[in-house]
């Protein structure tokens, strides 16, 4: 594999050119975030300056009603995130392990299904979810956490990829045969041999799922539920400053999560399958 950068006679650009272009691109991408940050801490009605008064307003009991919806949305989103991760562990992971160990031809079918949500526009799914949820809500009442079933579908590609890459890097069939020949039953094989080897993929998958849930707006908005993103969109009218602060915080939070997955993936990367990276792992196969 072409891992040694210095050996690239053909494609690699000169250091100076690369530095200049990347720095310009970096600044261009940081500018809107900087504008957002500057706005979040601007005094009301001014176009410059720095104040913390908007953060103080958050704890002001008189204005608390303004933020109620946002707090509720954040709570809902966290619960939905938790349930979505559980759904992935219960529905997706066992199917993937079973396909990898016993029905290897099914792997392609699972991959196809998991990547399908990329080609179905979320708005189309959302239109279809409306009648589905009308039925479900008759049974449960209008609770938000059930959205996890819908959001689970759009996070399938992101949940699937890291686990798949992890499986590709571990010879699961041999591991299984080894465990079985040492006398382990199926349950013991999966629990104490297979799952520990998939820990990294499962963790990345869960974190990416959480980031999809926290960024999800379309389905919540079509189904008229209150989540973090719909709460933000509403707060934008009442208090754009605080809304901006929360937007920044969320972006930063997810960025840090992904840097951590990326760093972990790089350090403990299996040499043989060195193309594994959680972020390239989040999209349709490029091969």
């Amino acid at each position: 594999m072409s891992r040694r950068g210095s050996a690239r006679v053909g494609a690699a650009p000169g250091r100076a050119t690369a530095t200049v272009v990347l720095v310009i691109a970096g600044l261009a991408f940081l500018y809107p975030l900087y504008a957002l940050a500057a706005f979040a801490f601007q005094p009301v009605g001014q176009h410059s300056g720095f104040t913390l008064q908007h953060l103080k307003a958050l704890t002001d009991p008189v204005r608390a009603y303004q933020y109620d919806q946002l707090w509720e949305g954040i709570q809902n989103s966290l619960v939905i995130a938790l349930v979505t991760v559980l759904l992935m562990l219960v529905f997706l992971l066992p199917a993937m392990i079973l396909a990898e160990l016993r029905y290897r031809r099914v792997r392609q079918a699972i991959e196809f299904v998991c990547l399908l949500p990329i080609s179905i526009p979320t708005v189309v799914l959302a239109v279809g979810f409306i009648p589905v949820y009308q039925v479900m809500w008759q049974a449960t009442g209008s609770v938000a956490w059930i959205l996890a079933f819908a959001i689970g579908i759009i996070s399938l590609p992101y949940a699937f990829r890291p686990i798949q890459s992890n499986m590709a890097g571990v010879d699961m069939v041999t591991l299984q045969e080894a465990a079985r020949s040492l006398g382990a039953g199926w349950f013991q094989t999966v629990w104490s041999v297979i799952l520990p080897n998939l820990r990294r993929g499962i963790l990345s998958s869960a974190l990416l799922t959480v980031s999809v849930v926290l960024g999800e707006y379309t389905i919540a908005s079509f189904l008229q539920q209150n989540t973090f993103q719909t709460g933000l969109a509403l707060l934008e009218h009442a208090d754009p400053y605080v809304a901006s602060t929360f937007a920044l915080a969320a972006l930063l939070f997810v960025f840090i999560i992904l840097v951590l997955i990326g760093a972990a993936g790089t350090i403990r990367r299996n040499r043989k399958v060195s193309t594994w990276s959680p972020s390239t792992a989040t999209l349709p196969p490029v091969r």
């Binding site: 991408f29 999809v212 960024g215 840097v259 997955i261 990326g262 972020s279 390239t280």
Partner: peptide, 10 residues
């Protein structure tokens, strides 16, 4: 990589 993932899906 991380920034691309954040910006692409977030």
């Amino acid at each position: 990589d991380a920034a691309s993932s954040v910006l692409a899906q977030f």
